[in-house]
Design a protein around this nucleic acid. Structure first.
Lengths: 196, 196
DNA sequence: ATGATTATGAGAGTAGACTCCGATTTGCTA
DNA sequence: TAGCAAATCGGAGTCTACTCTCATAATCAT
């Protein structure tokens, strides 16, 4: 949010160390699995003290977790009011993906693969998930002039996130599947669902 | 499956101990939370040795986990072939709920509440969930003469499970919501989705 | 250059899930 | 009732995420 671009040497070094630790961790997780990798190993691979790893990442899970959702939320909020819920989500998705740096996309996919695959990570993203659900309900409800806990809103949100998750699982497991177009196509099947 | 009803005193005692441990554990989890409860406390509450608790339940999570899905799977498999996927699921759901002992339902809901709420449990049910998804895809695909990894099958399954999960989350949090009727109503909104 | 601030290193320490094992009790069988 | 097998007990031991502390080194401001 308030990312000060003020680059003291100190800050730059910190950012570099942080990235180093994280990328070494991801490599180890990929190679030997999440549970089988200890924090000592991560520290050793990044050539820092174990306590330093914990200073940057309070929990092991934090080495993987992320938040690329805000962009999507923004896009959904600012979608034209005349669109139905499903259309709005499609538009927001397209906008989000388009605004992504393809370089970081690969690492993103790797992390997502782990999140959807490794139980511990699946667990610690629970809060994230319920948060996204709540947010999305709020937005879709507002767009249709309904309450956030309206059953119809809940159901549509559930259906939309259900298909998205299904596609996501597939895409993460098979590199030939393009998440964006596949998700768009999947959502198009739900266009019959309306509100209001 | 091969539940021998042969009741030696030994077996009866074992079953009783098992239930004792589990119900004491659930009580403690409800009262102080899952993470905040230690296995020692569970053992103490059930008045057995800690090692005995581990003999019955290899992991802490096993004290909560369960499998009431087989009934649903059976019902779905044997639904009339002329029904669409969503209708078939509705029917199977109704059948499953109808065949449940209302006495155990309460405890079931309690466990489900934890599973959907406590991260550690949410994690260890990952396998269960993916298993259910795969099974359901298989059945729906077979009913429509498609492949299990057909995109349409994946999408419909995703949507159906999405709404079900949404309703479930609600029902588990608010006792006044009746899971069965609410789920049926929610699914009725998806009837537009067809295959074949 | 110097003193203040901050990051890092190194290591000891804690907690709690889970394992192992020898001794004891308990139910089963003849 | 004697002997056998299974279950339990009690406790020592392991493993690893995570915490704390303090000394040292790097950066910053003046």
């Amino acid at each position: 949010m308030t990312e000060r671009p003020a680059p003291g040497l100190r800050e730059r070094k910190k950012a570099r160390t942080r990235k180093l630790i994280q990328s070494e961790a991801l490599r180890l997780f990929r190679e030997q699995g999440f549970a089988a990798t200890t924090m000592e190993q991560v520290a050793a691979a990044a050539e820092v003290a174990t306590s330093t790893v914990f200073r940057y990442f309070p929990t092991k899970e934090d080495l993987v977790l992320m938040d690329h959702l805000p962009a999507f939320v923004d896009a959904l909020t600012s979608a034209p009011a005349e669109l139905g819920p499903v259309q709005a989500v499609r538009l927001a998705l397209r906008a989000t993906v388009a605004g992504q740096d393809p370089a970081e996309r690969a690492e993103g996919l790797e992390r997502e693969r782990m999140m959807l695959t490794v139980p511990e990570l699946w667990a610690s993203s629970l809060d994230n998930v319920t948060g996204v659900v709540a947010t999305m309900r709020g937005i879709l409800a507002a767009r249709a002039g309904r309450e956030p806990d309206d059953p119809d809103v809940r159901n549509i949100t559930g259906a939309v996130l259900g298909v998205l998750l299904a596609v996501w699982f597939d895409a993460v497991r098979r590199p030939e599947v393009d998440l964006a177009t596949e998700a768009d196509r999947a959502l198009s099947q739900l266009e019959g669902l309306r509100l209001e």
